[in-house]
């Protein structure tokens, strides 16, 4: 494993500007433990025999080594794209940075609490869009006044009301694109130190993608760090200045967007 030892810290390159690190990933390994993976039987008798034979549970437990020794440091004001084929460990890595998955070994240091915005980040589907805006804002620690001031901005940004008064309908009536847009709008309303976006923009339409790219640029200017996982190389090119390429849980490349994307496109045969 050349990667792990290779770079606990990136080599000294351009020392002139002083940059503040916001996320330090230090030789991180992530291992999933999957229960009930062995037999594939979900029946009651299978569950019962599992309970009875608890002593030798090893047959049922599979360990998946999803991330193997990744290290990098992200700095304030950076937009870092994370690329790699499906199942290469990108989302797992982001979840660990957000503190939602424990690491097997290694350490992840972050500035404040990173926020992860994923495709499956469901909000409260039985409540209206408007209630979700208020509750989401309060949960993120905004005050009532802040939310009142930004409410219109959030709704306009999401574009939910473009086709009628949808914000007062329960979120379960929204299309997947609409709820993804509203989620992003709520999360992006606050200035995050570290915001991670896991393909959450993929479902939005073109106009919304343009708005969110502009918002990502704003968040970066406000001295935040943005991580973007995407299979759309164009949106990575448009938003990121640095790209980390993960394959089979190992970091293959880390560098300026153009160089890494060129190598990646060569690799995938585009």
């Amino acid at each position: 494993m050349a990667v792990a030892e290779q770079q606990p810290l990136p080599p000294l390159a351009r020392p002139a500007e002083s940059r503040v690190p916001t996320v330090i990933v230090d030789d991180v390994h992530i291992v999933y433990t999957v229960y009930g993976a062995g037999t594939g039987k979900g029946s009651a008798t299978a569950a019962l025999s599992r309970m009875l034979s608890k002593k030798r549970r090893s047959t049922n437990v599979r360990r998946v080594h999803a991330v193997r020794g990744v290290s990098f440091t992200a700095y304030r004001g950076e937009a870092v794209g994370i690329i790699g084929s499906n199942g290469s460990g990108k989302s797992t890595l982001l979840k660990a940075i957000a503190g939602l998955l424990p690491v097997e070994s290694g350490k992840i240091y972050t500035d404040g609490q990173p926020s992860l915005l994923g495709v499956n980040a469901a909000m409260m589907n039985d409540l209206t869009g408007a209630t979700n805006v208020v509750l989401g804002g309060l949960a993120m620690g905004m005050t009532r006044e802040e939310i009142r001031a930004r409410y219109k901005g959030i709704v306009d940004f999401s574009g939910i009301n473009e086709k009628g008064d949808f914000i007062s309908l329960p979120m379960r009536t929204y299309s997947s694109g609409m709820s993804a847009r509203l989620r992003f709008s709520i999360a992006a309303a606050k200035n995050h130190d570290v915001l991670m976006i896991d393909e959450a923009l993929a479902t939005g339409d073109r106009a919304f993608q343009r708005r969110s790219e502009a918002r990502i640029q704003e968040l970066r200017k406000e001295a935040g760090t943005v991580f973007l996982v995407s299979h759309n190389n164009k949106s990575i090119r448009d938003t990121c200045d640095r790209v980390v390429w993960v394959e089979h849980g190992v970091m293959r490349m880390d560098g300026p967007t153009e160089e890494v994307l060129t190598a990646y496109e060569e690799h995938t045969g585009k």
């Binding site: 050349a2 770079q7 503040v20 690190p21 330090i24 972050t110 990173p114 560098g255």
Partner: peptide
């Protein structure tokens, strides 16, 4: 991995380990 054009770091941070760097800038374990 091939690290191309690794991001710049302030010169006085170059010798620090990740843990020391984290401590210097007040980063906490996620």
């Amino acid at each position: 991995a091939v690290a191309v054009g690794a991001p710049p770091v302030p010169s006085d941070d170059a010798g620090l380990s990740p843990a020391q760097l984290a401590a210097k800038y007040g980063l906490t374990v996620s």
